[in-house]
Design a protein around this nucleic acid. Structure first.
Length: 556
RNA sequence: AGACCCAUGGUGUAACGGUAGCACUACAGAUUUUGGUUCUGUCUGUUAAGGUUCGAAUCCUUAUGGGUCUACCA
């Protein structure tokens, strides 16, 4: 009767083992702990999805906790953008919005406890001296001359650090762990420093601030987090994480590390992303070429696609570089299902239907979305004078060119079959300026009695009613799948200077005048596009989200 | 160079001592009023060498390769 078990990732295996052992009464509670000092990007998406989805799977909850222990880098602006991005991604932390700074008082008490247990001391050494004491990976550290101060002296000094008696950096509180440990994080790590900075939440209440290692695990513990899921680089911190919990005798959260996700042609380094923004390579943190959530949103990537991408690509401990094609696959999958099909001509060339009545306008029923049976149709004007895509015409067509060419027939999508009779070229440039066709009145879409069949179908717009639009064609931000992976080359050498092509005179069907920013469309035969916030009533702006897959070998 | 982590097709991830599977990509074909979608098919894999075992991707040893760590950042 046993059902076939769906495979578990290693985190789920740990959790199910804990559940079997009735640890924490089978409760599962995770957290997403961003530092509010930057914008969330694709790498964070993976962490968000893992934390929220894992908890959800086991009927648990996920807290949002801002890791704001460093007053000099953190700002409220980031708090707001982070919350907005997580919500947009589709996750809800309900009323569990916490801040490590909420625990400053408790953390201070924990420090006192450690001092009383003889497990922490105030060190007067300079930062350089402390670094020197730590030794290196092959040489054990040396003990600080202040390591064996009495509990009373430590208590007094720490109290005075808090009271502001010493200048910034003059003294620190260190945990007394093991100066000979091969794990450098255990060589008496600094756990409190003096910093006279204004904190975004606690203002000027504190002059001393806890370090990450003395805040994160304890915050997990205070919140009753059962499984603290983080990326691999924190694996060396785990012994310390456990050490504090053990010696503080507090709720035993468990840290589990997974490999962060990397995506080809994307970078996630805050410093490097900042460079793109600051030096004007992109227009801002929400530029559609940025791997930030804000950028992907503006690009038109649906949240569902990003979630699906993060979920379906699994969780493991080995380094990985996900192909961006995989992300685009989920983007297309969602958009194919949901987006309205419309006609837009990106590179227009005029087409005259010579035998069509001069002033006539017909309204054609056009399918909104063939993937959606309930999608319905809308009416699109058709007339004698149209525009089609320049590369849908070839003066001397190749064998498999199913589009327009002298003597060749095509169907105009949802309209008539036409045949090309003639074309006009600009004698100076050689460019085609006008294509002249005749149509077959009995071939009207939906009522075709002509018996004709055309190999190709073209999209079009009616010249008189078309709306001029700006279309921004985005390509990979970098020309190399791993721009930061070259020791001898700077990542900026791989910046794709053609990553944005701006088309200012595209012609789109009239209904697109009302496109709401953020709305996604499929421009038939071209790709998925998303109305941009720069759109105005006069001129809509569309961003290329992803092209359609194109299996035409002679394709454009 | 120490400690720790990791190693399965091009990419990512399963197989928990018993037939190496799935997804993406690529390629080929069918369908198609989007050269889209859908459907079908094909290619390519256990880093290496030993050992344990009736049997090893899986357990052990060594090697090789990759990654992480040595902030008063998180």
């Amino acid at each position: 009767m046993e059902e076939k078990k769906e495979p578990l990732n290693f985190i789920e295996e740990f959790i199910e083992e804990d559940i079997r052992n009735a640890k924490h009464a089978g409760r599962v509670h995770t957290r997403f702990p961003p530092e509010p000092n930057g914008y969330l990007h694709i790498g964070h998406c993976k962490a968000i999805v893992i934390n929220f989805e894992t908890a959800k799977k086991y009927g648990g909850k996920t807290n949002l906790r801002f890791d704001d222990t460093n007053p000099s880098t953190e700002e409220t602006e980031y708090v707001n953008s982070i919350k907005n991005d997580i919500r947009w991604l589709g996750y809800d932390w309900e009323d569990r919005e916490y801040y490590a700074s909420d625990y400053f008082g408790q953390l201070y008490e924990y420090a006192l406890k450690l001092i009383r247990k003889g497990l922490a001391y105030v060190d007067d050494s300079t930062a350089e001296e402390i670094a020197a004491q730590k030794g290196n990976t092959s040489v054990p550290g040396t003990e600080s001359p202040y390591r064996n101060r009495s509990v009373e002296e430590n208590l007094d000094l720490f109290e005075r650090m808090k009271a502001g008696e010493f200048p910034d950096g003059a003294r620190v509180l260190r945990a007394k762990v093991d100066m000979a440990s091969p794990n450098m994080h255990l060589r008496d790590p600094v756990i409190y420093r003096i910093k006279r900075d204004h904190h975004h939440r606690t203002g000027d209440d504190w002059l001393i601030y806890p370090m990450y290692d003395f805040a994160h695990g304890q915050s997990d513990s205070i919140e009753g987090i059962t499984h603290s899921l983080c990326s691999l680089e924190f694996i060396h911190h785990r012994p310390l994480y456990d050490w504090f919990i053990e010696h503080l005798e507090i709720f035993p959260s468990r840290q589990i590390e997974f490999a962060r996700m990397n995506v080809s042609y994307m970078i996630t380094s805050k410093r490097r992303l900042l460079k793109l923004v600051n030096e004007g390579f992109v227009t801002g943190w929400d530029d559609p070429r940025m791997p930030t959530i804000a950028g992907m949103r503006r690009r038109g990537y649906p949240a569902e696609a990003i979630r699906e991408f993060c979920m379906q690509t699994g969780v493991a401990k080995r380094d990985n570089l996900m192909e961006i094609e995989r992300l685009e696959h989920y983007v297309r999958e969602v958009l194919n299902r949901k987006s309205l099909r419309v006609m837009a001509v990106l590179d227009p060339v005029k087409l005259i239907i010579t035998n069509y009545p001069e002033a006539q306008v017909e309204f054609m029923d056009v399918e909104n979305n063939p993937e959606d049976p309930e999608g319905g149709t809308r009416q699109v004007p058709f007339s004698k004078e149209l525009y089609i895509e320049r590369d849908d015409f070839m003066e001397e067509p190749s064998k498999k060119f199913f589009r327009l060419a002298p003597g060749q027939m095509v169907r105009l999508k949802s309209a008539y079959i036409i045949q090309c009779d003639d074309f006009v070229k600009d004698p100076a440039t050689g460019a085609v300026t006008e294509i002249r066709c005749s149509y077959f009145p009995e071939s009207r879409s939906g009522a075709d009695t002509s018996g004709l069949k055309a190999k190709g179908t073209l999209h079009w717009v009616s010249a008189a009613q078309a709306v001029r639009a700006e279309v921004r064609l985005y390509d990979r931000t970098f020309t190399d799948p791993e721009p930061t992976g070259h020791e001898d080359r700077d990542f900026m050498e791989f910046f794709n200077h053609d990553s944005l092509k701006r088309i200012t005179d595209a012609l789109v069907e009239p209904g697109l005048r009302e496109a709401a920013p953020g709305q996604s469309f499929q421009f038939i035969r071209k790709g998925y596009f998303c109305a941009d916030v720069d759109s105005t009533a006069k001129r809509p702006v569309f961003n290329l989200t992803a092209t359609l897959k194109d299996s035409w070998k002679g394709g454009s």
